[in-house]
Design a protein around this nucleic acid. Sequence first.
RNA 1: UCCCCAGUAGCUCAGUUGGCAGAGCAAUUGGCUGUUAACCAAUGGGUCCGCGGUUCAAGUCCGUGCUGGGGAGCCA
Length: 459
Amino acid sequence: MKRTKINNLLKLENTPGDVLIKGWVRTKRDSKEFSFMEINDGSALKNIQVIANSNLDNYSDIEKITTGTSVSIMGKLVESPGKGQKWELQAKNIDIINIAPESYPLQKKRHSDEFLRTIAHLRPRTNKYGAAFRIRSEMAFAIHKFYKEKGFRYLTAPLITGSDAEGAGEMFRVTNLDPKRVKKQGEMNFDQDFFGQESNLTVSGQLSAEMFALALGDVYTFGPTFRAENSNTSRHAAEFWMLEPEMAFCDLNGNMDHGEELVKYLTQHAMDECSDDMALFSNFVDKSLKKRIDTILNSEFERISYTEAIDILQKSKKKFEFKVDFGTDLQSEHERYLAEDYFKKPVFLTNYPKTIKPFYMRMNDDDKTVAAVDLLVPGIGELIGGSQREERLSVLDKRMDEMNLPKKDYWWYLDSRKFGSVPHSGFGLGFERFLMLITGISNIRDVIPFPRTPGSIDF
RNA sequence: UCCCCAGUAGCUCAGUUGGCAGAGCAAUUGGCUGUUAACCAAUGGGUCCGCGGUUCAAGUCCGUGCUGGGGAGCCA
């Protein structure tokens, strides 16, 4: 008999008679003459209740079944006379695949997130993490669906790069030199390294995406990104996934339109396709989640300039630890105030001072600000960071000189401005931060299967 | 990297002025009427994070290290 997944069983209107399920026992309740078991196979949040009567031949073995045990069960799907579930399975045959001994760490009770992080290999077997990772999977799919529908092309940017001057923070070195030998020589000899020069793990696929946007029109990259910053916060990881759309013939407003449409589309998709899993988060993880999602879906995101934001912050009665002045980057407390207290919804901040932004952002006419855009969202802070790119070769040239960038390393990037340059825009969206936004999970370590953070690379 | 907090049974935590190591849940064993975080009873379970110090006496006080959490910076 062919196995039926539990999510499909639970959807049925009429009983198909006998079915075969395979999964893991979440809990067992014994009576004298029979046992109730709840089986979960990961296909859905919900379990199916199985009734094992004592007249089954291997009932003495069935009595020994513990939480975590893997089983294969054939039985008749019947309407449940008990409360709490529509269907239950009257077992005709129960095969125990593998008993989970008493040392199985997951109990039928709530565990702390901190404890579950220490058993990250088992935590997807819990309701909360199973739900989180089903949603993560569905959102990755939704990204591709969104871009397919919009006619974007998917580009895989290289993970190993030779350029290290993007200014996006510390990078992880990639080398196959023998550390013992390097120590003996006293220094790295990059000529002899695998690529014949210094190489690193990517901090962004943007520059690659720009080249492809200027060929295929609208493109996106979606893949892992690495930062060797010693960041110890609930919003940073050394390895995370970033979505980076890049659009030719697109200005800053088009960039924001796109970002807003994307965030709304993905959120709506999660609500439509993961309703049970999403309900778990709004019921048990974050009581304010429902309202937040409603705001994302049904409000227009605010759009203000950096200069206007400074004005709002300076006029605010709220006391800030750090002073705000034109030319300084906004602190966390300022970003949170704007998104959470002042506007109470996602806010695009545009046109930052050129002094605090990278070389590739397009210079505005005032010669003081650049066409940058950040999307600040309640609870997370920065979800999107992007810009309209500087497409004018002479302006880009001048900026790179000002910032002392080694132009010879960027010859190919500058070529794109030499040959048929066009206005174009793009941004990076932190995939994990987006998952935090829509689930209410407050630590980035809990939306990545096996998180990598400073001093921690278990599993 | 900086600031703050925490570390006691498998898990979550209590532990008073420094004076015999505790609870709930889990586990094990038994009971039980269709249960659903089942219920009832019994039993077992400890490097009180490590190291050093103060003291007649340290889970408790002091120093130090490690680990975890919250916040800041960096950013997505």
